[in-house]
Design a protein around this nucleic acid. Structure first.
Length: 309
RNA sequence: GGCCCGAUAGCUCAGUCGGUAGAGCAGUGGAUUGAAAAUUCACGUGUCGGCGGUUCAAAUCCGUCUCGGGCCA
């Protein structure tokens, strides 16, 4: 792990980790959430917490779910994992495709199992949507359909917008219509369910307040300059530490991880399309932008206690 | 030493017949209900290398200096 916070206990007082409520509630130990932007130091902080409070770490990162993407996704190393039990890292084959729903399906039993042993699940990761589904539940919507999506991808956006507007004007009016992803998902819900997405899809603002009050966790905050420096350092380490071999091996079996930052860039490097320093800078820029989006996401999760490093 | 080309936003560059400048990238802020490391929206004042000159008006024309790059010696 090689890094220390230097600020002592990552949460204000160690007692807040396992709330008193857990004692009344017999076997249930409230999970603790460790969130924050990429490269902010979630993993090592989580390990520290786990050691101190009999916790076990549970992944909440969309890409660390995959096997064979450990280096590029900056998954905890074998050495780190040896300190304390880690769950849901490298459990999916790169040919499988994950989504937030699948994640919830995978993670819930894991959390329950840890709790049943009287340990604290320490849920660690930066995938905001996955965490949101876990913490605040999901509306009863149809699962994504690959064939339908492929079909919609062929059609011009205006076409999809027109159809959505016709089928469900309410949903259309509250969807960012320039965002192809959002439009096609809304349309997909209508087509697959035969109902209006706007009827099925409920804002989770309603439930947020009461659910959020039960949740415990923190979001790591660092200055941009600090974060950018850490990102640059990590990217360097990845490229020196086997990312090329990892991507080369992965590229042969699946393009599924194409969306992972670093995958495309390293593949371009391997193909001789860009040089190493360009590759490094592209990864850095993409990672910085991702970190910023994560910060935007977590800023809205008011239940997360800020933890400034 | 002589000649030529370049110097404009953090970076790469565009800028017509002179009317005080705008793209991409980077950066910043936002959105986010089963693709989310995804997708998407908004945000553009900078001694136009310096100094002088011509002109009502100069990034643009002229002179000169500085710094790059090239060619000839």
């Amino acid at each position: 792990m090689g890094e220390r916070t230097g600020t002592g206990d990552p949460i204000r007082s160690g007692d807040t980790l396992v709330p008193a409520r857990a004692c009344d509630d017999r076997s249930v130990v409230t999970p603790y959430y460790v969130c924050g932007p990429t490269a902010s130091g979630k993993s090592s902080l989580a390990i520290e917490l786990a050691l101190k409070h009999h916790g076990e770490i549970v992944n909440a990162d969309a890409f660390q779910l995959y096997r064979g993407l450990e280096i590029v996704s900056a998954a905890p190393s074998a050495e780190e994992q040896a300190h304390v039990p880690h769950h849901l890292y490298g459990v999916l084959d790169p040919t499988e495709s994950a989504d937030a729903q699948l994640y919830v399906k995978l993670v819930k039993p894991v959390i329950a199992e840890i709790q049943s042993r009287g340990k604290t699940p320490i849920i660690t990761g930066g995938s905001g949507l996955y965490l949101k589904f876990l913490t605040h539940g999901a509306a009863p919507l149809p699962t994504g359909d690959a064939a339908l999506r492929a079909e919609m991808d062929e059609r011009p956006l205006e076409d999809l917008v027109a159809q959505l507007t016709k089928l469900d004007p309410v949903e259309a009016s509250r969807t960012a219509l320039q965002n192809r992803r959002f439009v096609s998902r809304a349309l997909e819900i209508c087509l697959l369910s035969g109902q209006k997405a706007s009827d099925l899809r409920d804002g989770w603002e309603k439930q947020t307040a009461e659910i959020s009050s039960q949740l415990r966790g923190f979001v790591i905050q660092r200055t941009r300059a600090d974060l950018h420096a850490r990102i640059a350092l990590r990217t360097r380490g990845m490229l020196d530490g086997g990312a090329l071999e990892e991507v080369a091996a992965l590229a042969e079996i699946s393009n599924n991880c194409e969306k992972a930052i670093g995958f495309r860039e390293v593949r371009a490097l391997l193909n001789g399309e860009i040089d190493r320093s360009t590759c490094e800078e592209l990864i850095n820029a993409a990672t910085r932008q991702y970190a910023k989006r994560q910060e935007t996401w977590f800023r809205r999760e008011k239940w997360l206690e800020p933890h400034v490093l």
